[in-house]
Amino acid sequence: MKFKQTETTTQHLIELKNISKSYNLNKDNEFRALKGVDLIIDRGEFVAIMGPSGSGKSTLMNILGALDTPDRGTYTINGVDISKYTDDQLASFRNKDVGFVFQQFNLLPRINVRDNVLLPTLYGYVENKDEKLKEVLTKVGLLDKINNKSNQLSGGQIQRVAIARALIMNPSIIMADEPTGNLDTKTSQEIMNIFKNLNEEGNTIILVTHEEDIAAYANRKIRLKDGQII
């Protein structure tokens, strides 16, 4: 089920309250990655999360993307608290509500563009799959490459396939983790323009980056330092 349809207009899309997360480095040492983070993100926002390495931005992204759960605090999205979800509940949530775009692209090399974009549909249901496939490939401008394998594509094209894959399930948020980290400047601009357009169409985008000029595409910047928002 989708939570988006049940929303009330006054509700925020994402509400983090007092989120803490620690990792055990070894038996006696604990690393506190997030120390009581509060964050609100509304529908249609384009947010850039920034910060040096070790600031907790990856941890925050993992929690926002439902890849991880916080030790303390609540994460409410579309009015539902998912901070105590089990692994399988999180998996279903990610399938329906999160579209990931990674720095490493993470396409499967042996299958073609069509199957890569449709990969999330193996694990969940989407209406009018074939129409949706055409729609998202048109958005990223790769409809003509639908039968190509990913090893026949350039880096920029691969990342565009990954964006199409992130869009196929109509997610509530698109999580982009350093999406231009492996691309040259010109291609980076193309990719960021796609994100910008997607945001203008109403998609909520959360971007993780350490580059100021990439973060400049976002409407709001959230800076992290030592596990806290500054």
Binding site: D88, R94, N95, F100, F102, L119, Y123, G124
Partner: peptide, 12 residues
Amino acid sequence: GLRKAIGARQNA
């Protein structure tokens, strides 16, 4: 990792 990120459950 990718399959899990895009929603594959453990059983899948």
